[in-house]
Design a protein around this nucleic acid. Structure first.
Lengths: 225, 225
DNA sequence: GACTGCCTAGAGTATATACTCTAATAATAC
DNA sequence: GTATTATTAGAGTATATACTCTAGGCAGTC
C-alpha cells in the first residue's frame, strides 16, 4: 500500500480509538514508523488528512443511502439502511466526537458537512415517504415528516456519544459495534406509533432484536420511575 | 466578587463562546487581567474549574427537574420543564460540545455525569408518566416509555450541536437562545402521536410557537423530498 | 553512469500550554 | 504595631504540537 493511503488508514484508526484531539501528526508518523517529514510530504497539514477522511465517509454514506425509486420499499430495505448508517457511523466514529471543533477549523469541511447533513435528512425523509407508500407506516403531512426525519437524524448522530458517556471508565475501547447497533432500537422506537396494523407486529419483532442487553450494567435503560 | 468566583464566571463565558478546547488557563487569566499564578492559587488545574462549573450546571438542572408529586401535571408544567432544560443547556453549552474529552480527562466528572444522565432520564420518564396521568398523552407500557425518554434526551442534548453544524460559518457567536428553543419543537414532535384527543389541539398549538423560522436560510428544515 | 522525479529521514523550530516558584502586597488577628 | 495568613504578580519551565528544511536514497530512463 502507498504511504499516502497508509497515513489515511492509520489516522482513521488512531482517531477512532483515541479521538482526534489526542492524536498528533507525530503520533501518526510514529505509528507508521515513518518520519514527520514524510507525512508532511503527503499532506500539507492535519486538516487535510481529516478532510480527506471525511470525504470517504461522505461517499460511503451517500452510497448506502442511494434509495431506488423504481420499486416499493420493504422492511429489509429499511433494516439495510439502518444497519448501514450505523456501520458508517462506527467506521468513522471519531468524526462526530469532535465535530464542532473540526468544522470550526476547516471551512471546506463545514460547508461539505452542511450539505451532507441535508442530503441525509432528505434521504431519511424519502425513506419515510416510501415506507408510507409501502403501507408500513401511516402517511404523515410533510411538516411532521420533516420534523420526524430530523429527530431520526438527531438520535442517530447522538447515539454513540450517549453510549460513551453511559459507560463507566473501564477499558478505553470498551464500546462495541453491537452496542452501537442498539441505536437502531431507538430509531425504531420513533416509528412505533406510526406503524400500520398490517406491519406493526413485524416491525416490533424486528425492533426487539436490537433491544439493549444488560441494561442495568450500563445504566442506559431501566430507568426507575 | 471574589476572584475565585470571577474565574468560574469568566471561564464559563469564554468556554461557551469559543469552546473549552480553544480556551487556555492563560486566556482566562488574561481576560480577568490577573496573573496565571493567581488563577492557580485558586484552582489546582483546568479540570477543577470545569468540574466546579459542571456541578453548578448539575444543580441548576436538578432544581428545574424537581417534579412535584402532590398534584397532577399541567401543560404549563411541561412547558416550564422544556424551557428550563433548554435554558440550562444554553447557559452551560460548552459542556456538551467537548463532552467526551472532558469525561475522558476527569473520572469524577465521568462518574457524576453518568449519574446526572440517569437522573435526567428518570425525570423525563416521570414526566411522561404524569402527562399520562393527567390525560395529556396516552399511557404507554414502561418499555416504550423508557425508550421514548431516552429519545427525548438524545434530541435535547444533540439539538445544539446540530444547530451549530447547520449554520454556515458567519459570525462565531451566531447561535441564539431563540434558535435553541426551537429544539422544543422537536421534542414536542416526539409527543405528537401520543396526544389524547382532548389535549391534541392545545399541544399542537403550543408546538407551533416553537416552529423554526426562516428554515430555508439555515437549511435545517424544508427538506426537499 | 548520470540525470530526473518521487519519496523519505530526521533534526530542528516557533509557538503554545498547563502549570510552578518566589517574592511581594494586602488583609486580618492579636 | 506586629505577626500571620490570604492573595496576587509575573517571570519562568517542561513539554507538546504542528510543521519546515535539508540532504539524501531509489527507481526508472537514456
Amino acid at each position: 500500500m502507498k504511504t499516502r493511503d497508509k497515513i489515511l488508514l492509520s489516522s482513521l484508526e488512531l482517531f477512532n480509538e483515541r479521538g482526534e484531539r489526542n492524536i498528533t501528526t507525530n503520533h501518526i508518523a510514529a505509528h507508521l514508523a515513518i518520519s514527520p517529514g514524510n507525512l508532511y510530504y503527503h499532506f500539507r497539514n492535519k486538516s487535510d488528512i481529516i478532510y480527506e477522511i471525511f470525504q470517504e465517509y461522505e461517499k460511503l454514506v451517500d452510497y448506502y443511502l442511494d434509495i431506488p425509486e423504481d420499486r416499493p420499499m420493504t422492511l429489509e430495505d429499511m433494516t439495510f439502511y439502518l444497519e448501514s448508517v450505523f456501520d458508517g457511523l462506527w467506521s468513522y466514529r471519531f468524526f462526530h466526537r469532535d465535530l464542532e471543533y473540526l468544522l470550526d477549523s476547516d471551512p471546506r469541511l463545514r460547508q461539505d458537512y452542511r450539505e451532507f447533513t441535508n442530503r441525509c435528512l432528505a434521504a431519511i425523509n424519502r425513506i419515510f415517504g416510501k415506507l408510507a407508500d409501502a403501507g408500513i407506516i401511516q402517511p404523515q403531512p410533510e411538516d411532521l415528516r420533516s420534523a420526524m426525519s430530523l429527530n431520526v437524524w438527531l438520535v442517530i448522530t447522538n447515539w454513540m456519544a450517549f453510549l460513551k458517556t453511559a459507560h463507566a471508565a473501564e477499558e478505553p475501547a470498551s464500546l462495541s459495534l453491537t452496542e452501537l447497533k442498539q441505536g437502531i432500537y431507538q430509531v425504531l422506537t420513533l416509528e412505533v406509533p406510526y406503524l400500520t396494523p398490517e406491519y406493526r407486529e413485524r416491525v416490533l419483532a424486528l425492533r426487539e432484536k436490537y433491544r439493549p442487553t444488560l441494561p442495568e450494567a450500563q445504566g442506559i435503560s431501566g430507568v426507575e420511575a
